[in-house]
Structures are given as structure tokens and as C-alpha cells.
Design a protein around this nucleic acid. Structure first.
Lengths: 124, 124, 124, 124
DNA sequence: GTGGTCTAGACCACA
DNA sequence: GTGGTCTAGACCACA
């Protein structure tokens, strides 16, 4: 369910939180569903429970999940989050494209990338 | 010439190296031109010379500059570097767009971003 | 495991990095295995931890190791590195032999060297 | 007559000394012939005269040249030097080949290099 | 004056 | 405990 990249520069807890964000935003973990327990996830990934806890705290702080004492963590309502996340992504993309433009990447090259990515989608 | 963001999570030496990469790739610092001296830059930015040294070592390791003992640091030939950098940027952009696509961002939204950015350019 | 030559003109951090390159390329430190910790190695060699850090940064920049925050440094996959290193060695050797040829060293002398070295190997 | 590589890690004075060593050992500058003057060489290479002076001192220390007060520097008798230099080269080559052997370079590859280099020579 | 190395020591994030 | 960043300060080679 969750994969870790140990070669990555990102700390483990951010990687884990990021994976769950994706799962939640894509609907694989629908609102209200229960998150795996900290302990079980720690066992499964052979990772210190503190690290899992930290990832969950991050997710809670960002509004992705909420915890119920003694019962576990649950996925929150995410309509607004998805919208916010889209905005962030668009901005980051814009910044990258602006940088690329400065280095002389032509618009046509970006069109080609878009063509490829959105054709893939249709094909699915 | 160089600005530092103390709020940023990026370490100082990476920020400094990054700024110079941009300046070099854009041609503001043409191949063969001399880099500011480690000490003078340290003074100007009120940063420890060791930190500047570290930034310059990074740039040297990446092939952006070369150092001549007793003379200073000089900008290297960068044709190949620019090409490599473009590839990296395009890949990063592609990854972001793929993520956006998964969250339901339509191709039209990216077209709008490109329209805006490349119209700015023509206007210049 | 690591020896330092204080007579050498090579800086300590390059010596240390070089020793590990050899150990890694020869397979004494297989991919995935953990490097000694910065602090323990510093103690063992009576060298400042910063210097060890610098050696490890170099190794990371060259792709020999990768670091996991809070865990340690690990040996990277090195198949490609070994190949690259062989090319470098062969080129350096070729340059030396070319110099020797200019000075009038006969091919027979090199054959003698090769005979000796590769007989040693069989003997092992 | 002398070329400088500013990208090289070697200090200028060592590069200059090295170039002259080659010229002398190959006989381009025969024993007894006069070396270019420090000043003229400094002008020609746009290099600080101190640096040239340092290179010449090195050459004198190694027995390649001798200086006559008020007249200039002259090439020394070099029969013995050439012999010593050959020994040094052979040893360095042997060390490199030994390293290569450890990394699994086959003897055949060295034979190929030798074949190529010594065929070039015949062709000349 | 130029770059470069090294030590000592503090401090931070992460697991 | 692990790696990593940064400062202060000394010292060296080179031009």
C-alpha cells in the first residue's frame, strides 16, 4: 500500500504523509474510512512507530485525517483539500515552466509533453 | 547580485549555488568570466567564507565553474550543462503535470498557463 | 579498515573518500551495506567529524553512497561506477604509457610488467 | 612552445616545469642550450614572473637546468635524468595496472592498449 | 590577495 | 544516536 524510497532526500515521515495524501485525494481512501494503525504500519514498513506517528500528525495538521481517541485515525472530508492541492500544483508547475522559458525551452516542447500525457489518459 | 532567503528550508550554500547556476545558464555570467572572490562575497552577504566555499565546491563538482589556485574561480563552458538542465526541468514539469492530471486538472488549465507565460515573453 | 597517510599531499578528505571508493568497487562494502557512522569514524581516525563529513559528501556527489537522515550512510548500487572507474584507469594508464614511449621505453618492458603482475594473480 | 591549462588542478609552476622536463628529456632542448629568460616567458604566457621563477627553481632542484649568474639558465646534462624518469614512469604505470587488475581489467585489455600505442609509433 | 583544508564547537532535523 | 549546516578562526599553497 505504501512504498518507501530510501535513496530519496525526503525524510521518511514526509514520504509517508505524501503517499497518503495521494491515496486520499485520488479517492482510494474515501472520507470516513479508517487509516491503518500506527503500530501495524510501523511493523509492515519496518519503520520506527515515532516516524509513522509524525507522518500522521502532519496529515492531521493539514486536515487530511482526524484522530479519535482510543479508536484510531480516520480520513477527513477532502473536497476543499483537493481544490487547494490543485492550486498548489498549478503554481509549482507555472514556476517550473517560467524557469524553463528563461532557459529557452519553446512552448512547443511543453505542448508535446501535454499531448503525450493527456493522450495516455484517453488511452486508459 | 545574489539574494539569500533566510526563511527558506534550503541550506545557504545550496541557495547560493542555485543562484549562480541560474546566472550562468542564462548567460549573465558568460564562460571564462571571473566569479566574485570567496572572501568578498562572504563579506557582501555577511556569510561565513566556509559556506561560500562549500557553494563554490558544489558548483565545481557540477561543472559550472573551475578554480585556479591563487587566481580565483572562473565560469566553465556550459553548453552541455544548459542542455542537461533543460532535460531535468522538463522531467520535473512532466511529473508535476502528471500529478495534476491524476487530481483532475484539465489540459485546458495548463494551456491557459502556457498562454499567459508565453504571451508575457512576446510582450517583452 | 581505513588508513591515513599524513605525509601525502592529498587532503585527508580525498584520501578517505578514495579508500572507500576502492573498498566499494572491490566489493568489500557491497551495495546496501551501511557505512561507518561519521562520528565513530572520526573517533577511530582521530579526525574532525567535519572532515569525515566532507569525504562522505564527496562520495555521495560521485554516486558511491547515499545518506538516510537519522539512519546513516549506505553504499549505493555501483555497477555503472565500476565500469566508469575502469575506463578512467585505462585512460590514465594509456597516458602514462604514451609518455613512457616518448622517452624510449620499449614495449618489451611493459610486457615484462604485465607478465609479473598477472602471474602474481594466478598464484593467488 | 609552452601551453598552460587553466582548468587543470596542477599549479601553474608545476605545469610549466613539467612542460620543460618533457622538452628537455625528448631532446627538443639539448644539454647546454639556453632556456628562455624568465621575463620573456612571463610576458609570452601573461603569467607572473615569480611563477616562472618558481618553475625554474624546481627544474634546477631536479637537475634539469643550471643557472649562470647574469647570463641566464641552461639545460643540464640529462642522460641520468632520463633513466631516473623512466623508472618513475614504469613504477607509476605498474601501480595503475595493479589497481586495474583488482577491478577486474583483463590482461588482454592492456595488450590492446600496447598494441595500439606501439603501432602508432611504427606508423610515424 | 586568491582558493583550500582542517579543527573546534554549537545547533538542528530525523529515526 | 544518525547526518547535516554553519560559524569562528587558524594555517597553507599559490600568483
Amino acid at each position: 500500500m505504501i512504498t518507501i524510497d530510501y535513496q530519496s532526500k525526503l525524510p521518511l515521515y514526509e514520504q509517508i504523509a505524501g503517499r497518503f495524501q495521494t491515496l486520499i485525494l485520488k479517492g482510494a481512501l474515501p472520507p470516513g474510512s479508517q487509516m491503518p494503525s500506527v503500530r501495524s504500519l510501523a511493523m509492515e514498513l519496518s519503520i520506527n512507530p515515532n516516524t509513522i506517528q509524525k507522518a500522521f500528525s502532519l496529515l492531521e495538521g493539514q486536515g487530511y485525517i482526524y484522530s479519535v481517541k482510543g479508536r484510531g485515525n480516520y480520513v477527513a472530508d477532502t473536497v476543499i483539500l483537493a481544490e487547494k492541492e490543485k492550486q498548489v500544483l498549478l503554481e509549482e508547475t507555472e514556476n517550473l515552466i517560467r524557469q524553463g522559458r528563461e532557459l529557452g525551452i519553446a512552448r512547443a516542447e511543453y505542448n508535446a509533453v501535454l499531448d503525450r500525457l493527456y493522450r495516455e489518459e484517453e488511452a486508459k
